[in-house]
Simulated scan of single mutants.
Amino acid sequence: MDEGKIISIEERIPKLKKLRKRKTNRRLIFIISLFFLIVLAVAYFQSPLSKIAFIQVEGNALTPKAEIIAKSGVQEGDSIWKVEAKQTEKKLESDPKIHQADVSIVFPNRVKISVKEQQKLAYLAKGKKLFPVLNNGAILREAVDGTPEQLPVLYDFKAGRALDQLMSSLEQLPVEIVNSISEIYYAPKKTDSLHVQLFMNDGYEVSATLKTFSEKMIYYPMIVSQLDPNIKGIIDLEVGSYFKPYDSEKVKAIEEPTPQQ
């Protein structure tokens, strides 16, 4: 009697059979789809499409593309899945010329390397050769050919505290002021191991200390505006601000601009 009731209910509710059929069909479709995905994945891994065909490098100016690729350890022909982005980025960022690196996989078989390099702020003179100096104090090994950009040329500096502090100071200054400097000489005194002497493109000479270099030099345009452009001399920014013409013993105190709040 119970069995009769069950059959009777199924006969009266045909939707139940349809629902069961739909569930069966969905499971079958899922299994077939999964099977094809596995087949496609295996075919991809075993095909040339899974091998690195091209390595794209962008953002580099100081570092040649070939050098960046060699530093990364990524090679064309390697499996795309062997590329470990984070480790590759760390390798590239260990280069003093590279500030930041980003490595990504572009399917099906390309690797993209984007770098942000350190900033070139000056040139270090060694004999008749000029070597680029970066904002982190790193001195590049390759001398420049031809006429370099309008950046300060450094004399008597070497890798170390004074050079690092100078680069940090130049990095804080506006580009216009940095480009107005022709030469910077490291000229330590008994009373100041961080004393520097600058020769400007406008004909003035500046005596300063790296202790307050960026704080004082930012006002250079305003200081010069108080002087007669036809009378050149030394602007002393070590303690206070003073101007001494080359052809006179007189020293003129220069009014320091009030720092803006």
Rank of each mutant, 00 (worst) to 15 (best):
E3Q: 14
G4R: 14
G4H: 11
S8H: 14
I9A: 14
E10N: 08
E11G: 11
L16N: 14
L19K: 14
L28A: 15
I32L: 11
I32N: 13
F35K: 04
F36Y: 15
L37Q: 09
L37P: 01
L40G: 10
A41D: 01
A43V: 11
P48L: 04
S50A: 12
K51I: 00
A53Y: 14
F54D: 14
V57H: 09
L62C: 07
P64W: 10
K65S: 15
A66D: 13
E67F: 04
I68Q: 05
I69H: 12
I69N: 09
G73E: 06
Q75T: 12
E76D: 12
G77Q: 04
D78E: 14
S79D: 11
S79V: 05
K82Y: 09
A85V: 03
Q87P: 05
K90P: 00
K91G: 06
L92F: 15
E93R: 11
E93N: 13
S94R: 13
D95R: 11
P96V: 06
V103D: 01
S104D: 10
V111E: 03
K116G: 09
Q118S: 01
Q119C: 00
L121R: 02
A122L: 02
Y123M: 00
Y123F: 08
L124W: 13
A125F: 08
G127M: 03
L130W: 08
F131I: 01
P132R: 04
P132F: 06
V133M: 00
N135D: 14
G137D: 01
G137C: 05
I139A: 11
I139Y: 15
R141W: 00
R141E: 10
V144R: 01
D145T: 10
E149I: 00
Q150W: 09
Q150S: 07
L151I: 09
V153E: 06
V153C: 00
Y155A: 01
F157L: 00
R161Q: 06
D164Y: 09
S168D: 13
S168R: 12
S168T: 09
L170A: 08
E171R: 10
Q172M: 03
E176F: 08
I177D: 06
V178S: 05
V178L: 01
S180T: 06
Y185A: 07
A187E: 06
P188N: 11
D192H: 12
S193P: 00
S193K: 12
L194N: 10
H195Q: 12
H195I: 03
Q197T: 15
Q197F: 13
L198I: 14
L198E: 08
L198Q: 03
M200D: 07
E205L: 02
E205P: 03
V206A: 01
V206N: 01
A208G: 09
T212Q: 12
K216P: 02
K216M: 05
Y219T: 04
Y220M: 05
M222T: 15
S225V: 06
Q226K: 09
L227N: 14
N230W: 09
K232Y: 12
G233S: 02
G233V: 07
I235F: 08
I235T: 10
D236A: 03
D236F: 06
E238Y: 10
Y242N: 05
F243R: 04
P245L: 00
D247K: 15
D247N: 13
K250Y: 08
K252T: 15
K252E: 04
E256A: 03
Q260N: 07
Q260R: 12
